[in-house]
């Protein structure tokens, strides 16, 4: 290697950071740009992680300093324009800087589904309907779980699949991590509010990961979380600002109606604004779910059909943190392999 290859990693969440670290370790020159003023992405907003309840900051505490030490970090920076020239990418950044990269790694991730779009669930209309992200923020900031009126909730409901598996909002896919997140949060609510009844309203419980099933069992066994199989049809508000939920208990085969003091919506993943922009800018193919589609879903999960452009993390579909981290390492290897192949061809 006569000159060090330069890789631009776009997005400073766990996937971007992990890839950057490994690419640096392999001897590449890496610039990582992040539009926020801090590295970490969504993980910064999580209090603790499934399935083992470890604090989320442990992840960022390890990744952030490592990447800061090894790579060039540019915060509050976005890509303005990319031009492909003689096998290089001429990239214009939002701060006016122009840089040349030999490869691009798209790690722009996801956004959470905007719960306003499910009007029948009353988010933004009823004060006691919140999202799982908002609940997590309360956990993180040690704010006690209270209703809008400041009362201790006697009943909390979790609604699975909000904005996922729903053709009415145009998202037909499963967001994968909401089920286990609901279980994780339900347990925490029960833990912090003894005596509070917790209900999960689900269509299917997709406990796909290792230990997830244990979590499900523990939620029932130890914490008494109740699982009701039925997708929420609608929510209303009573005069005490309690949320009346309506659904069919499909296992009992009868309509079910109950009041909860707090309703938590497990909003799913949508491609982030950055992911959509990168896909448009680089002309990357998208799957039906509008996330970036890699060249091969089994063998080339980080490669895109555009030479020199790679993808990792949740820009290529809903993923958990641990999956994103593994995927980020795979992306680093994929990039290295691509450089090796192309340099051989060059000789």
């Amino acid at each position: 290697m006569h000159t060090r290859k330069h890789i631009l990693v776009i997005g400073g969440g766990v996937a971007g950071m992990e890839s950057a670290i490994h690419l640096c370790d392999m001897g590449y020159e890496v610039t990582l740009i992040e539009k926020q003023d801090q590295l970490g992405g969504h993980v910064l907003k999580w209090d603790f992680l499934f399935p083992d309840h470890r604090p989320a900051y442990e992840i960022t505490n390890e990744l952030c300093p490592a990447v800061e030490e090894k790579a060039t970090i540019k915060l509050q920076t976005e890509v303005k324009n990319i031009v492909r020239q003689n096998g290089h990418f001429e990239v214009a950044l939002s701060d006016g800087e122009k840089l040349t990269a030999d490869a691009l790694l798209v790690a722009t991730g996801f956004d959470l589904f905007d719960a306003h779009k499910k009007e029948e669930y009353g988010y933004g209309i009823y004060d006691n309907v919140i999202t799982a992200a908002e609940l997590e923020e309360r956990f993180q900031n040690k704010i006690p779980i209270r209703t809008a009126a400041g009362k201790k909730p006697a009943r909390v409901g979790f609604v699975h699949c909000v904005g996922s598996r729903d053709e009415k909002v145009g998202n037909e896919y499963c967001s994968k991590v909401c089920c286990v997140t609901a279980v994780k949060q339900a347990m925490r609510v029960r833990e912090s509010l003894p005596g509070c009844e917790v209900f999960c309203f689900y269509m299917d419980l997709r406990m796909f990961g290792r230990y997830f099933e244990d979590l499900y069992r523990e939620a029932q066994e130890k914490w008494g979380v109740q699982f009701i199989r039925g997708r929420l049809s609608e929510a209303a508000e009573d005069i005490d600002q309690r949320i009346i939920v309506k659904l069919e208990d499909t296992l009992a085969g009868r309509p079910l109606r109950m009041a909860v003091d707090l309703l938590v919506l497990l909003t799913g993943f949508v491609p982030s604004e950055g992911t959509r922009r990168m896909a448009t800018m680089l002309n990357l193919p998208l799957g039906n779910d509008r996330f970036i589609k890699p060249s091969d879903e089994h063998l080339r999960r980080n490669l895109t059909p555009v030479p020199g452009v790679f993808v990792t993390g949740a820009s290529a579909g809903p993923r958990s943190i641990s999956e994103s981290i593994s995927d980020a390492r795979a992306a680093a290897l994929e990039i290295a392999a691509w450089f090796n192949n192309s340099s051989q061809h060059a000789i």
Binding site: E119, E120, G122, G124, I125, Y126, E234, A235, A236, E237
Partner: peptide, 9 residues
């Protein structure tokens, strides 16, 4: 209207 609480509210 039961599916559009923003309207009824």
């Amino acid at each position: 209207g039961q599916l559009t609480p923003a309207v009824t509210q």
